[in-house]
Simulated assay, not measured.
Amino acid sequence: MNINPGQIDQILNALPYPISKQNLIDMARQRGVNDQMISMLEKLPDKTFNSADDIKNSVSGIGNLGGFKL
């Protein structure tokens, strides 16, 4: 799967912060994010994210996501 980092940044930067994990997943689904990325979001800690960087830092803390990096 080809992931365009610019597209990911655009989506993350357009989210209303702060945002809960569940709202993040719901909004990702509404925007047509694929199942692989939804699965990755579901692995995030159950917390409120305050920025795109907060989400990116949490993703990097999950570990190996099949080569997926933000």
Rank of each mutant, 00 (worst) to 15 (best):
G6E: 13
Q22D: 14
G63R: 05
Y17I: 00
R29Q: 15
S20N: 08
N57L: 14
P5W: 06
I19F: 03
F68S: 02
L15Y: 03
S39I: 07
Q10E: 09
I25W: 02
Q22L: 11
Q30C: 00
N23K: 08
G63S: 07
M27F: 12
G32C: 02
D9W: 05
N13T: 05
Y17C: 08
A14M: 12
S51W: 09
E42F: 00
I3Y: 09
A28K: 02
M40Q: 09
D46C: 02
I8P: 00
D53C: 02
A28Q: 02
K43D: 08
M1K: 05
D54V: 08
D26A: 15
G6V: 02
L24W: 05
Q36D: 12
Q7D: 04
Q36G: 10
G6D: 09
P16N: 15
D54Q: 10
D53Y: 07
S39F: 12
F68H: 03
P5Y: 06
N34I: 14
Y17V: 07
S60K: 15
G6Y: 05
I55D: 00
K69N: 14
L70N: 03
G63M: 08
N2D: 10
Q22A: 09
P18W: 00
D46F: 01
S39E: 11
R31S: 10
M40E: 05
G67N: 07
P5G: 08
V59R: 07
L24E: 01
K21M: 04
M40S: 10
G63F: 04
L70D: 02
L12D: 00
I11L: 15
L44M: 14
I11E: 07
N50A: 12
K56Q: 15
S60L: 11
A14N: 13
Q30H: 01
K43A: 09
N57S: 12
N4V: 07
N64I: 03
R29W: 05
G61S: 13
F68D: 01
D9H: 08
I25G: 01
Q22S: 15
R29F: 03
T48I: 14
S51I: 13
K56L: 12
V59Q: 05
Q22C: 04
K21H: 10
K43H: 04
I55N: 00
S58C: 12
N34M: 06
R29V: 13
S58W: 06
L12T: 00
G67S: 11
F49S: 04
D54N: 13
S20T: 14
L12F: 13
I19S: 01
D53T: 11
E42I: 02
Q7C: 03
V33Q: 10
K69Q: 13
L41F: 14
Q22R: 13
N57C: 04
A28V: 01
D9Y: 07
N50K: 13
D26T: 14
D46Q: 12
L41I: 09
Q7I: 10
M40C: 05
M40F: 11
I3Q: 01
N50R: 13
T48P: 07
D53A: 15
K21I: 06
N4Y: 11
G67W: 03
D53I: 13
I19V: 15
N50M: 09
P45K: 11
S60V: 08
G63L: 06
N50E: 10
S51M: 10
D54M: 07
G61R: 06
P5I: 10
